[in-house]
Amino acid sequence: MDFRRLLDKYKYYTIAVSMIVIIVSVVFLFLFVQKNQKEVSEAERTMTSIISTHSSEAESSSQQLYVDIKGAVKKPGMYEGNANMRVWDAVMLAGGVSDEADTKYVNFSERVVDQMVIYVPKVGEEVQSSTSKADSQNGAMNDTSKVNLNQASESELQNLPGIGQKKAQEIIRYREENGGFKKIEDLKNISGFGEKTFEKLKDLITL
Rank of each mutant, 00 (worst) to 15 (best):
V112I: 15
S62K: 06
A134P: 08
T144V: 08
S129M: 06
M85Q: 15
M85K: 08
L6E: 03
N82W: 05
Y119N: 15
S18T: 02
D203S: 12
L6R: 08
D186N: 14
G164P: 13
Y174P: 09
Q37F: 09
G162Q: 05
L207P: 10
L157S: 03
P161A: 05
K133P: 02
K146C: 08
S55R: 11
N159A: 08
E57Q: 09
K196M: 10
V91Y: 08
I22N: 03
S109P: 02
S155M: 04
L160G: 07
V24A: 01
N178V: 10
V87P: 12
S109N: 13
G95K: 00
D102P: 01
F3N: 00
K122D: 04
Y13L: 07
Y13P: 04
K188C: 07
G162H: 08
K9H: 00
G192A: 08
V27W: 00
M1W: 05
E195T: 15
V33Q: 06
M92D: 02
N150E: 07
S62V: 06
K196V: 14
V120I: 14
R45A: 14
Q37S: 12
Q169R: 13
K188S: 10
K9G: 01
K188Q: 15
E154D: 06
S153C: 00
G124E: 02
R111S: 10
N150T: 12
V26E: 02
E199S: 15
V106F: 09
G194K: 03
N148I: 06
G124Q: 01
E125N: 03
S136I: 09
A58S: 13
K196N: 14
A72F: 04
V26W: 02
S155I: 10
E177Y: 01
N84W: 05
F30M: 13
T206N: 03
K9D: 00
D68H: 05
D89I: 02
E42M: 09
I184V: 14
M1C: 04
A58I: 14
E59M: 12
V17C: 04
T197S: 03
W88N: 14
K35N: 13
Q151N: 10
L207S: 10
